[in-house]
Design a protein around this nucleic acid. Structure first.
Length: 206
DNA sequence: CGTCTTTGACCCGCGC
DNA sequence: GCGCGGGTCAAAGACG
């Protein structure tokens, strides 16, 4: 469907960065079959808005990105997405309570965009990918001592979301899950991110 | 004062 | 039908 990777990386990488990250990406088909391969990326940097960045990320110059399509019962939903208008399943609205940003009409089925998950070895939870995110929720996750944080892109009209979660098994790994594609250019660039992009082009299976 | 995070409540889907 | 877990909302607070 949307296998146009370049759309996902609106900022062309420059080769000027001298930072020393190494990236390894591997498809991680841990769950079921029927995998698709899409890519999205989250760079490594401090987002100095909020997080616990007392611990410097400079030491964690080794990035270990593992990339896998998240298998969220998505295969059937993708199929149904096209004929979505025809289906009248339920008349619920998104989210808790009164107002929903996506004004779904009565009878429309909730459409989930495909999601792309990355595992990133990083000291910090928040990875600066050049976009501005606003946190809108945090939930405790079953079988995980770390909570999952929910972020939404703050750009007007851009409905991209991401989830950030640290693994219990390996506390150094942060799983970042993106949902949707940005409809606007990147808002700020970082050397780290650009460097990661340049690496990604090598490894991304076009 | 504007922006962002925190956090409890709410809603929904799904399995039993 | 019920309970659980995931996802979202929105008011309140923190912060620059």
């Amino acid at each position: 469907m949307d296998n146009n990777y370049s759309m996902l990386f609106p900022c062309p990488p420059s080769s000027s960065s001298t930072s020393s990250y190494q990236i390894s990406i591997s498809n991680n088909n841990n769950d079921n079959s029927n995998q698709q391969q899409h890519g999205f990326i989250s760079g490594l940097n401090n987002n100095n808005n909020n997080n616990n960045n007392g611990q410097s990320s400079n030491n964690s110059a080794f990035l270990d990105l593992k990339f896998h399509e998240q298998q969220l019962k998505r295969s059937e939903e993708d199929k149904e997405e096209e004929e979505d208008e025809r289906i009248n399943v339920s008349d619920h609205q998104l989210g808790g309570g009164s107002s929903s940003s996506s004004n779904k009409k009565k009878g429309e089925k909730k459409v989930r965009k495909p999601r792309y998950a990355f595992q990133t070895r990083s000291q910090v939870d928040i990875l600066d990918d050049g976009y501005r995110w606003r946190k809108y929720g945090q939930k405790a996750v079953k079988n995980n001592k770390f909570p999952r944080s929910y972020y939404r892109c703050t750009h007007q009209g851009c409905n991209v979301k991401k989830q950030v979660q640290r693994l219990t098994k390996d506390e150094g790994i942060v799983v970042t899950t993106y949902e949707g594609v940005h409809t606007h250019p990147i808002e700020k660039t970082t050397d780290n991110f650009e460097h990661i992009l340049s690496q990604m082009q090598i490894y991304t299976p076009f």
